[in-house]
Amino acid sequence: MSTGAKKRILREYAECQNDPLPGVKINFDEQNMTKWEILMDGPDQSVYAGGHYKLEINFPNEYPFKPPVVSFKTKIYHPNVSNDDKGSMCLGLLRPEEWKPPNKVISVLHLIRNLLIEPNPDDAIELSIANDYKTNRAEFDKTAKDWVKRYAK
C-alpha cells in the first residue's frame, strides 16, 4: 500500500473521530490500518434497535481507487447483507464500478446506517429476505427482531 493511501486512511480515521456517528465505534489498529473494526448499534428507529453489530471494513491495496470491503461479522436479517459467514454488503457506492476515489469512509458508514434504518430491497443480495420485506413486512420485522435477540445482543 502506498504512503498516499496510508496517509489518506489515517486522515479519514481522524475525521471519523472528530465527527462521530451516533452509535458507531471504530477500533483502529495503527499496525494494521487497512482493517477497521466497527461496532455499530442498531439505530433506534429501526427493527435492529437494541442490537450490537460487529462489522469489518477492509481497505484494498488499491484504495482509494477501489472501494473498501464491508462485511458484517454479526448475523443480521437484512436484504442487503449476505446471509452467510461472510456477511458481505455490496451495493451503491460500495460497488467497484460505482465507487469514486473521492468518496470517504464516513459516507460508507452513513450508507450502512441508513440501510439499517431503511433496507433497499430493490438492490438486494438476499432475494428471499427482500421479498419478505416487500410483501410481508410484519413477518420480516418479526424475524429481524428475533435475529437481533438471538445473535446481536
Binding site: 502506498s2 498516499g4 493511501a5 488499491e62 481507487f65 476515489p101 473521492p102
Partner: peptide, 15 residues
C-alpha cells in the same frame, strides 16, 4: 507505471 501515483494523477485529471 506506479499504480497509486498513476491512478492519483488520472483521478485528478478526471475530476
Amino acid at each position: 507505471n506506479d499504480y497509486s501515483r498513476s491512478m492519483a494523477i488520472v483521478t485528478h485529471f478526471k475530476l
